[in-house]
Design a protein around this nucleic acid. Sequence first.
RNA 1: GGUCCCUUCGUCUAUCGGUUAGGACACAUGGUUUUCAUCCAUGAAAGAGGGGUUCGAUUCCCCUAGGGACCGCCA
Length: 464
Amino acid sequence: MSKIATRFAPSPTGPLHIGGVRTALFNWLFSKKKGGIFLLRIEDTDKERSKDEYKDQIIKSLKWIGINYDGNEYIQSSKIDNHIQVAKELLKNGHAYKCYCSSEEIEEQKKRAKQKKIPYIYDRKWRDKKEVDAPKNIEPVIRFKSKIEGSTILKDLVQGDVQIENNTIEDFIILRNDGSPTYNLSVAVDDQQMKVTHIIRGDDHKINTFKQMQIYNAMQWELPNFAHIPLIHTTEGKKLSKRDKASTLDDYSKIGIMPEALRNYLLRLGWSFKDKEIFTLEESIEHFNLEGIGKSPSKLDKSRILSMNEYYIKNISEKDLFDRFNEYCKNYKQVIGANKEDKIKKSLSFLKNKAKSLEDIYNNSKYIIFDEVSFDENDVKLIDEKAKKIIADFRNEVSKEKEIKKETLETIINNLIKKYETNFKGVGQPLRIALTGSKFGPGIYDIMISLGKLDIEKRLKKIT
RNA sequence: GGUCCCUUCGUCUAUCGGUUAGGACACAUGGUUUUCAUCCAUGAAAGAGGGGUUCGAUUCCCCUAGGGACCGCCA
């Protein structure tokens, strides 16, 4: 058997969404597992809607999540001549014919079918007509001569055998009347020429597969293997579309989801290997198989993504975590100053315990990133006269110390709790607000130690 | 409407004829932590319905119901 080759073939007519990314991931994993190659084909033949910006977004997305394709991206529009060539051959072999129906005529037929509530299918009017009868003023389209008799079985690697009556497949157009090839022709020709051995794509392509299989057969090409994976549904249970919110990788990236977490989540969405939930990249390549792909569509679950992200935040190395965080801040929030990097790195050990996302880490580390504390009005109200006294006392005690250590801080705070006849919250909360501007965040000792004596004094002074 | 696909806890799923139907997320309760979070423990939670086949069906077959995809000179 020839070398395994898979491909991902998006059209750059909109941003790549998470469903497409999962399809790409499955194809990529499958080829890696089999020691094959994975190709990227940009299907940009719809010149009206294709945009370079989308192409770039697709490439960027794949890169972000760690999917790398072999060779250069294959640009479908640059291969149109090949597609036309095949169409001509099909015409010559009698597997295709010229259809002189005007688009008005077709529209009319569709309308009538709708009124009668019967399914529209092209009536194959020109299939056996002689060309001498052709109207002179109409530029014909080329239609594929689909089989009428019998049925076809698709041996689907995910869905099993799928049988369909051949007469339900119409004589589809392969060349428009402007001479340009249509989707099914281009795809079949490209896949064949790229020597794709396994076509793993969304279930929404299943009908196309039957059309493309006929082209393969007519050209006497060896059929590739097909696997139709169930679609990802929104929480409303509908097919995920480019228009859905929170569907592109950037939508997740900007709320602080890390690529490894999303990759792991997507892997387990519609695929499983026993009870295993966490897969390193190596493990996913090792265990991935088509048998593990489920047959029913699955819904996106944001809390699951977040919890996967939380796992990776806690389990990747702090060095990697810093890199991810640094990049996140740079892209979506605020560049971390060079003088702050060290403090952040040291604080990651406790910051990550409270975070489900990089955004959480950001929110909890603002007190380090920004020199000026920004206060929430409601929180400031919590610092009353008594609290101000406590803060002043605390600052006074701290200034006597040479070095800030947890033990000394504990002693100071405990003494204040006694002196002011309050509890930990009574002392801790005002201090926290004064130092960070927020009621929530890391432990008070962690905050103080990471800030250091000078910053503590400076910040507390402003309050009292 | 036609064709095709699907149906196990709220969600993602395990089970390849015999299980107290398992795990994970979310949820609830309790414990640890002198706040919050983390962490730990516990709990509630599922085979769409009806027929077969079988000694025995979540598992195999059929029907019904529900959901989905496709039905472009878009890809």
